[in-house]
Design a protein around this nucleic acid. Structure first.
Lengths: 250, 250
DNA sequence: TTATAATTGATTATTTTTGAACAAATTTAA
DNA sequence: TTAAATTTGTTCAAAAATAATCAATTATAA
């Protein structure tokens, strides 16, 4: 039995049971355990399954409960650097919009002792700032359980009812050519509502996302007045952005 | 059974019951208690649960301020009895308003597998039902950190935008003479908004609160069409309520 | 055919996971 | 409050799984 056939059978079994065991499947494939392991390593590399100690499991099962906390831990150091700078822009008494991105979420520890008013559509932010000195206002509407945030018409209208001194928005992609882009229309919708009803909008974006486009472009680069990024961004790039009148805070 | 599978089962159980016990779950996972503890430690590290002495609990439960958790535990048995009956009134496909009381909160386990739409101003309810089969809609507005809920004009207007099949409202006090009464105006305001925009409103009230008045009366007894209470309520009292055309569900 | 490359299996060393024992800490009961 | 019981952290050893290395087999191409 060659690799292709074994691959077939492994995937098949995985679809059926969700998990497989090296010891169990080796005789079924008429091969040794070490070969099975090698097969699994290859399939894991291709993203077709997730290795476990002693076997493998379906991708969907392994990723099921990815907590917000974990997502927010990706590139944690850069994000903290950005968030410290973002928080420094806020003054006591400000009314602040915060969007629902994982970067913005990390601003919480830096602002929880300020006497400000926060309007947000992010449940993790509300939970995090509950009981702090920040006065909270949640933008209601349909809840997206994946992003743990409200979205849609109602949420947009909620932001439009208020005027904020400052808004802080995480962005998925930005480039000189195509401006701002998002991974979903819903995100873009909220971003625009937030930005248009704040006196100053600060876009947060770690350096890895500079000059990267997402599938849904929704605003030109001229729309961006303040961009906060981390110190890993190249000097040349920063200069180019500045020449387009983007205020860079690095 | 390897770690990945155990992790699955632990999270599953946690979603279902809210808490788990090391002693109870160890045999279910076909492993020793020490291994379960190690698993829990890892999952706690990842923020997927919160460790307790002897087991673990859902993050959402632990984040509740003491006041709410304690309140929700007072008269727990009666409240569960009431909530089971309340949940039995709900049908698949219903749009349901839930208010922010600690009694109503306890309905969550009984409805999390229903295909319904829930509109609420309670953060604990949102956190509890997140990821369930219930479609969620949060009534936004100013957040009251003590009650962990939105209140005020915006929240009221939010409820007014929708029409629900059923509303479930906890009440602090009710009496034949003075009707419904609340401990605060804000609560009464939300209660009225919810009740007036639902086809049927069910008032939840454990028997200890019958014939007890609070400082702010806000609606006559005629306003109450359905009252759900526990079996400790005296027969005579129930009869009196029924004679005032209050539909009693005991 | 012969040389080369790819695949497989066996062996051994290393890593990971698990369970047991016991002291320390925490909770519960008196 | 103190004493008893429970739970936990820590250390160590056993077991299981894996990676690494090398030899054997099979397939491929000149």
């Amino acid at each position: 039995m060659n690799f292709q056939v074994r691959k077939q059978k492994i995937i098949e079994q995985l679809e059926q049971d969700g998990i497989i065991d090296v010891k169990e499947i080796a005789p079924l494939l008429e091969t040794s355990e070490i070969t099975v392991r090698r097969d699994l390593a290859i399939l894991a590399e291709q993203g077709l399954l997730v290795r476990t100690h002693g076997g493998a499991m379906k991708v969907s099962l392994s990723q099921m409960p990815v907590s917000f906390a974990q997502k927010s831990a990706v590139n944690a150091e850069q994000k903290d650097e950005i968030c410290r700078k973002a928080a420094a822009q806020i003054q006591e008494g400000d009314v602040v919009f915060l969007d629902c991105g994982s970067t913005v979420f990390r601003m919480c520890p830096f602002i929880r002792n300020l006497n400000i008013k926060v309007v947000t559509n992010s449940l993790p932010i509300i939970n995090e700032l509950m009981g702090s000195s920040v006065s909270l206002n949640f933008a209601g509407g349909e809840i997206d359980s994946e992003r743990q945030a409200a979205h849609g018409k109602i949420a947009v209208e909620h932001f439009q009812r208020y005027r904020a001194d400052k808004a802080f928005v995480g962005i998925d992609g930005i480039s000189l050519k195509n401006g701002l882009s998002a991974s979903s229309e819903k995100e873009a919708e909220i971003t625009m509502a937030v930005a248009q009803n704040a006196r100053e909008t600060y876009f947060l974006c770690d350096s890895s996302k500079l000059e990267r486009d997402r599938y849904f472009p929704f605003a030109g680069i001229d729309f961006v007045k303040h961009l906060i990024t981390d110190s890993r961004a190249s000097e040349g790039l920063l200069g180019e952005y500045r020449s387009r009148r983007v205020g860079m805070i690095v």
